[in-house]
Design a protein around this nucleic acid. Structure first.
Lengths: 209, 209
DNA sequence: GTCTATAAATAGATAGAC
DNA sequence: GTCTATCTATTTATAGAC
């Protein structure tokens, strides 16, 4: 059997994958249903057979990523470890999930930019859950004196965006060769990046400032 | 004279302002030329009289903000101050410019998400200049031993995104009342936020880790 | 489940009067 | 400089055969 040959009935998964990439590259508005269908190598009518609308498909892509990430974050926050260990774990978990779903960072960045305008309340509640996990870890560390008294929202929005942009940025780089500075910077590996963010997070939360 | 009455010949500035807000709220693709014209209270034909195309108008908005910011960053980097003072100044300058142009953060976030796909080379070079200013400040501090040896690109992408998202986020908040956590967080004032970012930047760059 | 053909709406852009 | 009216292309979505 050929490598890319799909088995019958797999067309839904193919559409999902194609949509995730299209939405990530272009954003909801610029994404084209025709292009999604073509990437999935199905007909456009097939796409509408599986999904009610372009927006319903987008919501599926959103929920798939948010569900997993918020669950992992919740598990870490509810665990028995010390606050600083949980913080490292939380950072590593987010970075790993972002690395596993390349479409996640660009999509989240655009939603942040547009005031979450394509996100329904239920999905938004899941996204909120990601923050709540972080907040709980931070609160634990502040109660037991491990962390200083930084604001949780400001701190969250210091750590998370840098993760999102680290991954989103790699496409800029590949598209702007020959440019010194920003675009010429070599891509870093995930492990090195996890350590960088963990270090930043610890530095920001350190008690003795 | 009525408060909003425009003098003859001001239509270009009105279009520019309307476009900046429309692009910030919706992004390039979702922005509608009709809506820009309506916001500017001119006819669509008037818009095309001043600007060659939707994309040309977008580029003008981009350059207006990037020119100013990169010039301020350059001036700070080329100054005579110590590296840690320059770092604080650089952070304050970026935050102030972002506060003065509310359309800047959302637009930059989207471009970061889409691999700068709507940005021409000349404009991209200006954006690169913002980074180069930061890099020079960091290099100065590393040469004289004030800063540790963190990577400039990673550090830049730890600091800048948090600024962009701080401002972009305020719209999410205003649109999701009644939601606990993320969206329920009270908006912070600019001064408090500048100090938070300066503190984060100093913590990240501190020599003794 | 899968496809071809097409409907219906809307977008960016321009012609041409004033 | 300013406006009305319109052209052309494109887009999401569906009807209906297989």
């Amino acid at each position: 059997m050929a490598l890319k040959k799909r088995v019958r009935g797999d067309s839904q998964a193919a559409v999902f994958q194609a949509a995730a990439h299209e939405f990530a590259e272009r954003g909801f508005e610029a994404a084209r249903v025709d292009r999604i269908a073509a990437r999935a190598r199905v007909n456009k009518a097939m796409l509408y057979y599986h999904y009610r609308s372009k927006h319903a498909l987008y919501t599926e892509v959103l929920r798939d990523m948010v569900r997993t990430i918020s669950a992992r974050g919740r598990a870490i926050a509810d665990g028995a470890a010390a606050a600083d260990v949980k913080l490292d774990d939380w950072v590593a978990a987010i970075v790993e999930e972002a690395a596993a779903r390349p479409w996640f960072p660009p999509i989240m960045l655009r939603e942040l930019a547009s005031g979450a305008s394509h996100i329904d309340d239920e999905t938004f509640a899941m996204i909120n859950g990601v923050y709540l996990g972080f907040r709980d870890v931070m609160a634990q560390g502040q109660r037991d004196g491990t962390f200083g008294d930084a604001d949780p929202v400001l701190t969250y929005f210091t750590i998370l965006p840098s993760i999102l942009i680290f991954f989103a940025r790699q496409r800029v780089i590949s598209q702007r060769r020959g440019m010194q500075g920003l675009a010429a910077a070599a891509p870093r590996n995930t492990g090195e990046f996890i350590r960088h963010v963990q270090m930043t997070a610890r530095a920001t939360l350190r008690r003795d400032r």
